[in-house]
Simulated scan of single mutants.
Amino acid sequence: MAYNPGMELDMGWVNGAVVDLPAVNRRAATLLTKRTVKKSWQAAWLLRAVTCIDLTTLSGDDTVTNVQRLCFKACNPIRQDLLDAMGMGDYGITVGAVCVYSARVKDAVQSLKQAGGAAIPIASVATGFPAGQVPFETRLKEISMAIGLGATEIDIVISRDLALSGDWGKVYEEIKACKAACGENVHLKTILGTGDLGTLTNVYKASLVAMMAGSDFIKTSTGKEGVNATMPVGLTMVRAIREYFHKTGFKVGFKPAGGIRTAKDSCAWLALMKEELGDEWMRADLFRIGASSLLTDIERQLYHFVTGRYAAAHQLPM
Rank of each mutant, 00 (worst) to 15 (best):
L295D: 04
R35M: 14
M211D: 11
C182N: 00
C52I: 03
D84N: 06
L46H: 01
V157N: 05
V18I: 11
I154V: 10
W168K: 13
E173N: 04
V233P: 14
A177P: 03
L82W: 00
L272E: 03
T56C: 07
A108C: 05
V203H: 05
R288S: 05
A123H: 07
K39Q: 10
Q80I: 01
I156D: 00
Y204R: 14
A291E: 05
M237Y: 07
K255Q: 11
F250C: 15
P5A: 01
D54K: 01
P22I: 05
I191Y: 04
E225F: 04
P22S: 10
W168P: 12
A271C: 13
M273T: 08
I120Y: 00
A210L: 02
C182T: 11
M86R: 14
L277Y: 06
G198H: 04
G16D: 03
Q133Y: 14
G6S: 00
A146L: 00
A163W: 02
G92L: 06
A257N: 13
V98G: 06
T190P: 01
R104Y: 14
G249I: 14
A284E: 15
A240S: 06
I143T: 12
F250Q: 06
N202H: 03
D54Y: 04
A181L: 14
P5Y: 09
S40V: 06
V14D: 01
K39N: 07
F129H: 11
T307H: 15
M273I: 03
W45P: 09
G195N: 07
K141D: 13
L316T: 11
A271M: 10
I122L: 12
T51M: 04
V227C: 08
P135Y: 02
I78A: 05
A206L: 08
L235V: 09
F305H: 15
L83S: 01
S124G: 07
K264A: 09
T57K: 01
Q80G: 10
S221Y: 03
L9H: 09
T230V: 00
E137F: 03
A85L: 01
L316K: 05
A312P: 11
G116L: 04
